[in-house]
């Protein structure tokens, strides 16, 4: 049975449509990531699931039961807020204990202690339990916020950009940690982010959002290889997919196509002039493990990854051969 089901869920704030007819089924134990830039309605969707916002229309089912009119406390889920939302006047221990001390759960103080110590160890904050919540670093606060969700052991975890305010190193560490926790708990995770690497590495399935709409849902690989629109294609892949007018490159293309999308793997580079198109290396970004080539092709520019040992230099003439490029029509849909 699906852990979370959305049926025609819509919500708007004034003229802004934050959720447009969402239909979504999230399986038990799935790690589902909502990806999109800020302001497309990711957080709204999460808040509606938590019961903090009410949908204007449609039904939300949790574990098969209609939860549309349930208050947050009636839903068995935990929420990790983007801005931590730790209780500033409590220490870390009391912050973690807060959800457990709810009379609805009715746990003994010793059980609570045991659970907190377990979670604190998992998140490596055991030595900070006595600290005040406000006397922590950003990374520690974030881990406490995640911990406050974990101690509850709910069936669904909602996480709103939980790693966004951390530095790159810590973000990478916690990302791995989260994946591990998910595998250990086997609970359902619904995770909002604007970071494509987070989405790709964590998700069982990704939902790409734009203007309150779910544009495409699928496994990371499906979405990466088979984007259904220009918008979705632009969300994944680094460097971003190269979009060019079809006339610039292809000799053969579907009739309605107006745009061609090229990622590194769609292009074969050749130093000799045997390829179909001739271009020139404009400049090279050396990133250590890889080089980023900026290629000039008549009036167009391309960004392509190349291995550092390709020995190309700025000004070199190169030829390109296309391999299974992506074609899009004038509305931005994939052909």
């Amino acid at each position: 049975m699906a852990a979370v089901t959305l049926e025609n869920v819509s919500k708007s704030f004034g003229k802004i449509c934050a959720a447009d007819q969402h239909n979504l089924e999230i399986r038990q134990g799935e790690f589902f990531v909502l990806l999109g830039p800020t302001g497309v309605g990711k957080t709204t969707l999460l808040r509606m699931l938590a019961g903090l916002d009410k949908p204007d229309q449609g039904r939300i089912l949790l574990d098969g039961k209609d939860a549309s009119n349930m208050a947050p406390y009636e839903r068995d889920l935990a929420f990790v807020f983007q801005q931590y939302s730790l209780y500033p006047h409590m220490n870390v221990y009391d912050n973690l204990a807060f959800p457990l001390r709810s009379p609805i759960i009715g746990l003994s103080e010793s059980t609570i202690k045991w659970r907190i110590e377990k979670v604190a160890e998992l998140l490596k904050i055991s030595h900070k339990l006595k600290n005040k919540a406000t006397a922590l670093s950003g990374g520690e606060m974030q881990r406490v916020a995640i911990g406050r969700a974990l101690v509850r052991e709910p069936s669904v975890y909602l996480m709103d950009e939980p790693l966004s305010s951390l530095d790159a190193k810590l973000r990478a560490d916690l990302r791995i940690e989260l994946k591990r926790i998910h595998e250990e708990l086997g609970a359902t995770f619904i995770y909002v982010t604007h970071d494509q690497i987070e989405a790709m590495s964590l998700a069982d399935r990704i939902g790409i959002m734009n203007n309150g709409k779910l544009m495409q849902i699928g496994t990371p690989q499906e979405i990466y290889e088979n984007p259904n629109s220009v918008y979705v294609a632009q969300r994944l892949g680094q460097p971003a997919i190269n979009l060019l007018p079809v006339e610039a490159l292809a000799d053969q293309y579907p009739e309605s196509a107006t745009t061609i999308g090229l990622r590194t793997e769609n292009i074969q580079l050749d130093k000799s002039g045997s390829g179909a198109f001739q271009g020139m290396v404009d400049w090279i970004e050396h990133l250590g493990d890889q080089n980023r080539l900026h290629v000039k092709l008549a009036s167009e520019k391309l960004e392509i990854l190349a291995s550092p040992d390709s020995r190309l230099a700025a000004g070199d003439a190169i030829s390109l051969t296309l391999k299974d490029p992506l074609f899009f029509n004038s509305e931005g849909h994939r052909i």
Partner: peptide
Amino acid sequence: PPSLYEAAEVDRASTFRKFWS
């Protein structure tokens, strides 16, 4: 911050507990 009350709501705090804690 209103988000504290939202966090407490998700953490299943009653109205009285939100006031008290």
